[in-house]
Write a protein that binds this DNA or RNA. Structure first.
Lengths: 219, 219
DNA sequence: CCTCCGTATTTTGGATCCAATATTGAAAAT
DNA sequence: ATTTTCAATATTGGATCCAAAATACGGAGG
């Protein structure tokens, strides 16, 4: 299996740094707007600045960090307008992904979605915000990947990444976690019936609620 | 003016390399699938491998090159399916951009579009394929930028970049160039009347024709 | 003749060093 | 007191060097 081979190989410093930076940004350890000092970070991560800089270039492409020549990198800040824009784009792309996914959905896919949903529910019961975010993401990406459009999947993933820092806030509220569980169940139900319109609708509501919540949190 | 200041500043080696690589890929000087030897390229461009590698990371993020750890970079190849996927995603995003643009369209925007269209027509008359590609791109991007959604604009731009190498083929045919001119006029006309549906429709046809043409060229 | 294995070469990954640019702070002039 | 200038410092950009991995090559064995 090629996936196994890829994982067995010790990761390059660059991949390691990339993962660490992503975590630091999405969990909020590196605050939006904070400048990124290459020397300090490189020493903290025990690597030289070269792999760090390449990782930062990757993150720049994903919109997680901002770059200005001779002034360096900083964590991207999202205004309310930016956030709305990202969610609107997600809406466009995810609707397409869901419709294609429904058209190709196999029973095995439904099993995987069910398993992902179980993880979500476990995390929600445990009140584990980080696990919740991870499981929720897995649920959605599993669905989107069923569309068989790898580029579309990648774009959606990137958009999720840019708002991860803010989404964590959302899962902070127990009521929100309960709500997510319910909405996922509705989505899963629609998927079982191969009802694309209904599935799209439930996800649209899902996003709209998240946006509304974030708007009140940020204003 | 900050734009002036930015241009007055001598570009970094990295920016220079980025531009050169983009040109080399989109014009086909670097063929799809060709491996990228860092030493050779660096020497050719008279820079060290460091800025070259950072530029390649940027291009990787944009989907112009593929990367595999310890095996290096190569120019991304697009299968017919990939190409269709990219155009489908463009369709989704560009429709949104046009609708928002129409809603906000000012007379000054129409003037800029008219000017861009003049360039397109001049290039078409001259039979200059490269100028045609540049002018056509400017026309569309000018329109999309009117939506006032910078992230959406950036995504669309990236998608255009990934297919640039193939689009050049399309403009090779004089009949196609004529067709593009006509379709742009129809779009411009719809925009003047603030008819969003019509504008979207003309652009959809525009793209569909390009895809069909490319499919026959590549099969 | 083909396959397998080990070595030589090529190529990429990373560390260190130096250069160029930006930022900071203090002194001087208004 | 405020602003300007200029030097000192911090930070990024780039070049060179070394290490690690992959590829290419050639010989031994079947």
């Amino acid at each position: 299996m090629s996936a196994d081979e890829a994982r067995r190989r010790p990761p390059t410093a660059q991949q390691f740094v990339l993962g660490e930076l992503r975590r630091a940004i999405t969990t909020g350890r590196l605050r939006p707007g904070a400048p990124i000092r290459q020397d300090a970070l490189a020493e903290e991560l025990q690597v030289s600045r070269v792999p760090l800089r390449e990782a930062l270039k990757t993150l720049q492409g994903e919109g997680l960090v901002r770059y200005e020549a001779h002034r360096g990198y900083s964590v991207e800040t999202l205004s309310l307008d930016d956030l709305r824009e990202v969610y609107r784009i997600r809406e466009l792309l995810e609707e397409e992904a869901v419709r294609r996914a429904v058209a190709r959905l196999a029973d095995a896919d439904l099993d995987r979605l069910r398993a992902a949903q179980d993880d979500v529910e476990r995390a929600a019961d445990a009140g584990d915000v980080l696990a919740m975010a991870t499981a929720n993401r897995l649920f959605h990406m599993t669905l989107f990947d069923c569309a068989g459009m790898p580029r579309l999947s990648r774009l959606i993933r990137t958009l999720w990444d840019t708002t991860d820092a803010y989404r964590s806030m959302y899962y902070g509220g127990p009521a929100n976690r309960e709500r997510v569980v319910k909405e996922h169940r509705a989505t899963l139900d629609a998927l079982r019936r191969r009802d694309a319109d209904e599935a799209v609708a439930t996800l649209t509501v899902h996003r709209a609620h998240a946006v509304a919540e974030l708007e009140s949190l940020l204003s």
